[in-house]
Amino acid sequence: MKTLLKLLNKYSYVLVFLVLETIAIVLLSNHNYYQHSRILNTNREITGYIYDRIDGTREYLSLKMTNEILVSENSNLRNKLADISLNKTELSIAEVQRLSYYTPARIVHSTVHKQLNYLTINKGRKQGVMRDMAVISEEGIVGIVLESSPNFATILPIINRDFRLSTKIKKNNFTGILHWDGNSPQQAVLNEIPYHADVQIGDTVITSGFSAIFPEGLHVGTISDYSLKEGNFYSIHIQLGTNFNNLFYVNVIKNYLQEEQRILEEKIKQ
């Protein structure tokens, strides 16, 4: 007994080390986006509040650019409005059921140069932002809502190694999986395009609509480079439309048909 205690005393340091590292590993492996965590939600409220305060300064410095973006967005919308009044008859189906609803939000915190980047926005459950909603910017898609607390939400952006999205090439509808290789925040990789597809530099890549999160046809980016991998697939580099270095305002999309599609797909699985 005495020797045992002595031994424990001698190695208690190693023991504490092992216990703490185990806790860290458990936290690390449990903390993925399928798990809700109360602690994290409370924490998001607090850190979100702090970031919100700090972000005020950053915002002032970029007011001019933000103005320009808003002006161009305004004119875009005016153009679309003009188109709609011209082709009003074609829209009758869309008017029966509104497919999606846009919530504007401001980014209060973001990381760009890590492997696991996240964004925090200043809209949460109170404003109707729920997990699995799509987030877009004026230039293209941004990411998916991971978790939301009452006033803030965390977004998994394209530039996170955990991000996967089904996308397609606009001109020929070949679909593939978009992911991020962890190098440049301006580039992502598109895999699983078969090699008989006609791929050109400059082709537009859009969302495929297969995932129920993103509606079909949203701009993702353009092809900047491609090579033939071993096997029969291309490895394509995409120049992302969204500039994550300079992102301040986003729109969260609520897709009214998402729930319906999800329920239907789950029925098939059973």
Partner: peptide, 26 residues
């Protein structure tokens, strides 16, 4: 070790990477 863990986990809470900085710091 304990303070290292606390420091790491505090950084993690802000960067949404629970456990990562804690592991490295410990």
């Amino acid at each position: 070790l304990v303070t290292a863990f606390m420091l790491g986990i505090s950084v993690d809470l802000f960067t949404n990477t629970l456990g990562m900085h804690a592991f490295a710091t410990v």
